[in-house]
């Protein structure tokens, strides 16, 4: 039982990290209807930026805030100079552009930082906690608390503020939102800022938790998060979060605990195929 609970806690942590990366992708798809594969490259940049800023200053706060700012800027550059000029073309064109950016950033990281795995020797300021004889390590606790805080802030922005209302309106009908005085392009830019800053947080958390930062760390999340936004329902942030948490737990419990002989990374795609056959609009997606 103890092993099961420990694996469950690991699964929730894994799912939390998936959620942090996936929700940026879901937000961007919601307002632009673009599969922003390059989001995973922004996550990689976030990890490297956090590592270098932490190395230079020794401050995790500077690492987080600086990395979030850098990733937000990268996200806006991708939106302005890649996606915006390509919006008039069919959706596969910006998708190809996005894949090109992902590969370019990975190679740039390899050239600049080297092809090695760098360590991220930081300790997040959270204690080890014991609940009913089960240890929740400081790393796990940090992932839970930071993910919960990010989700809470995002929930507040999207459901309780005028900006959030504008984001939801623009994601449903950008043209009509424009006739209400909502600047849809500005909303798209803000969405990229939020999504990219969240990816930076995920990059740093993964870097610290696994003590690894490397050029291709975004490759697996790039395709796995695509499957997750389909499972959750394209453009649905709550759906993406639920799908992410479910996948994190399924990977840990089915593969790690129950030893089902499947490759771990295949589960996201099995889930995607299953959801597409059962409910093509995804868990919380809308067919409208």
């Amino acid at each position: 039982m103890q092993l099961f609970l420990e694996q469950l806690l690991n699964g929730i942590a894994m799912g939390s990290i998936y959620a942090l990366v996936t929700l940026g992708l879901a937000l961007v798809y919601g307002v632009m209807r673009i599969l922003h594969v390059a989001h995973a490259a922004v996550y990689t940049i976030g990890a490297y930026a956090g590592l270098y800023l932490f190395g230079a200053t020794g401050s995790l706060a500077v690492a987080f805030l600086g990395s979030m700012a850098i990733c937000a800027a990268v996200g806006v550059i991708i939106e302005r100079f890649l996606y915006f000029p390509l919006l008039k073309y069919p959706p596969f064109v910006p998708l190809i552009g996005s894949i090109a950016v992902l590969l370019s950033i990975e190679e740039a990281a390899r050239l600049v930082a080297g092809p090695y795995i760098l360590t991220f020797p930081a300790k997040l300021p959270f204690p080890d906690v014991y609940v009913g004889g089960i240890q929740i390590s400081s790393g796990l606790l940090a992932i839970y608390v930071i993910t919960a805080a990010v989700l809470l802030v995002l929930w507040y922005i999207t459901t309780r503020t005028e900006l959030g209302l504008a984001m939801r309106a623009a994601s449903q009908d950008a043209v009509i939102a424009g006739t209400m005085g909502i600047n849809s392009h500005a909303i798209i830019t803000i969405t990229f800022v939020i999504g990219s800053a969240t990816a930076a947080i995920a990059g740093i958390l993964v870097g610290i938790y696994y003590n690894q930062v490397y050029p291709t760390m975004g490759t697996v999340p790039a395709y796995k998060t695509l499957a997750l936004i389909v499972v959750g329902g394209l453009g649905s942030v709550p759906g993406a979060v639920i799908a992410s948490l479910a996948l994190g737990m399924a990977e840990t419990l089915l593969i790690g605990y129950a030893n089902i002989p499947l490759p771990r990374d295949a589960l996201a795609f099995i889930a995607m195929i299953g959801v597409l056959m059962w409910r093509s609009e995804g868990l919380l997606g809308s067919s409208r």
Binding site: E162, L165, A166, R168, A169, Q172, D173, I176, A177, M180, G181, I182, S286, R288
Partner: peptide, 18 residues
């Protein structure tokens, strides 16, 4: 062309944006 996944009240608030 109302916003399909906003409530009636939220649709009205969207009209008063800014």
């Amino acid at each position: 062309r109302v916003f399909p996944r906003l409530t009636v009240y939220e649709n009205l608030l969207a009209g008063a944006y800014g």
